[in-house]
Nucleic acid binder design. Structure first.
Lengths: 99, 99
DNA sequence: TGCGCATATGCGTGCAAGCGCATTTATGAT
DNA sequence: ATCATAAATGCGCTTGCACGCATATGCGCA
């Protein structure tokens, strides 16, 4: 049950959920981009990305002065299914841009 | 995004997640049964069930001195899909009884 | 070497969540 | 009426989380 709780806790926060939604396009995104798009402070974004990484949801890669985050390709299928369902639920109506 | 966050926050707590797993058999369960099965105090269980009800995940029904909870049949499909995925992930290996 | 951009982190603060205990409220049985 | 069982709730406490600010670290370029 622990892994499910870890996953759910990681997703149950607005900034992190928004970040996961963005990262779920399968591509890489640097922290500075997320900061710009989501309109949050840098330290806040950095910490939340560290939390998502800690939860095993994303992985990071250093690229010059940037750190690029992306969806963890080794995420177990059962957990990926949960996130897919969550992200899918965000596609509904006004959720496309609403906070 | 709010409804997804509400749902995720409700599930991201051990006692509530355990309760949801039990209730996801589709049948009714009174608080006293959950207290016994999950081994938690009565006030704790009562509050957590109130939280799940508040989140729209379950509904309750008074039956004599008991209050019977069950899965909310009117839960939107996108949200039900999330919970289904979560509950399904709990079926893996040792998660059957582990806390 | 020195500068600038990107990212991480130490620190202190405020707030919300979860808890147990005790009590109250419902309901039914004797 | 009294009592027993079930459930909810007021209260106070503790803890963990998220936050911003300031600073440190990593990296490339001039």
């Amino acid at each position: 049950m622990q892994s499910a709780l870890t996953l759910l806790s990681a997703l149950a926060e607005p900034t992190r959920l928004a970040a996961v939604r963005l990262l779920w396009d399968g591509r890489e995104h640097c922290v500075c981009e997320l900061v710009r798009v989501l309109g949050v402070t840098q330290s806040r974004m950095s910490r939340h990305m560290a939390a998502l990484k800690q939860a095993g949801i994303v992985i990071d890669r250093r690229d010059a002065q940037w750190v690029r985050y992306r969806r963890n390709p080794e995420l177990p299928a059962e957990q990926a299914a949960i996130i897919d369902a969550v992200v899918n639920s965000l596609k509904t109506r006004s959720d496309r841009k609403a906070a």
